[in-house]
């Protein structure tokens, strides 16, 4: 009995200690790809080009975040390393703190101008904060995805991040659920940023509860950019893919 108690105590203690090494790898299921990226595949294989558009409502380069590098640029660097001889360009577009209606409205001119092979659509946070009707959100998301697909581009949806300090204030789950539905209905990928970051928090890779600028931003975005680049390479069955 006492041995068991000691084991439990040790286990609890281990839970309290910070993680030893920073390692952004996550469990395989979290980044499994099910939907192909045909346009990405074709453009890379045939034209040696990869043009990615990242769309979000994130006010990234403001306040304490000004001047910090975010996941789109880390992803670009990683892709350029993986895809030698391919011209990779990543363009990040944001309508800061505006709900999905504004993002969808901005899509047509943006798609026309950028002609992306892939749109990574980061969404769900502003809507959760404003407690938008999840059904309405789902409809708008579907409409937006259809616009992107009609413009002959692949889509990856990215849900809200895991934010332990604020997640009691608003619930992102209904929005992620709608992303799941749209992803299945339109046969596109969902990059589950929330679960990935939660995995890091639970396994002690990152302490995500910092109140101040603790240097976490770039480390975490570098990990996200790396995972995303790997996700794109695998889903698009690109030459750099290890599974090939």
């Amino acid at each position: 009995m006492s041995i068991r108690c000691a084991a439990v105590a040790l286990w609890l203690l281990a839970g309290l200690l910070p993680g030893a090494a920073e390692n952004c790898s996550v469990s395989h299921e979290l980044v499994a790809t099910f939907a192909p990226l045909p346009h990405v595949h074709d453009d890379v294989v045939k034209n040696k080009k990869l043009n990615i558009l990242v769309v979000s409502a994130a006010p990234t380069q403001v306040g304490a975040a000004a001047g910090l590098k975010s996941y789109p640029s880390f992803m670009e660097t990683a892709l350029k390393e993986r895809l030698k001889n391919t011209e990779v360009s990543v363009f990040a577009f944001s309508v800061p703190r505006k709900p999905i209606d504004d993002v969808v409205a901005a899509l047509p001119p943006l798609l026309k101008e950028r002609k992306p092979d892939l749109v990574i659509w980061q969404t769900g946070t502003v809507e959760a904060i404003r407690a938008m009707d999840p059904d309405v959100y789902g409809e708008k998301l579907m409409a937006g995805v259809e616009l992107i697909q009609a413009a002959k581009s692949d889509v990856i949806l990215m849900n809200q991040q895991y934010s332990p300090r604020t997640d009691f204030m608003f619930d992102g789950a209904p929005y992620t659920d709608n992303m799941r539905y749209v992803a299945q209905a339109r046969d596109i990928a969902l990059f589950n940023r929330y679960e990935i970051m939660k995995y890091w928090a639970e396994t002690g890779v990152f302490d995500l509860s910092g109140m101040r600028n603790d240097g976490l931003y770039e480390k975490l975005h570098k990990c996200l950019g790396g995972l995303l680049s790997d996700f794109i390479v695998r889903a698009g069955s690109l030459p750099g893919s290890l599974e090939q």
Partner: peptide, 21 residues
């Protein structure tokens, strides 16, 4: 009380989007 406490002290750039709340 809890959100007011957070609002004045929470300045992690990682969460600029969430602080819209």
């Amino acid at each position: 009380a809890e959100i007011s406490y957070l609002a004045t002290r929470f300045q992690n750039p990682l969460y600029t989007e969430e602080t819209g709340f």
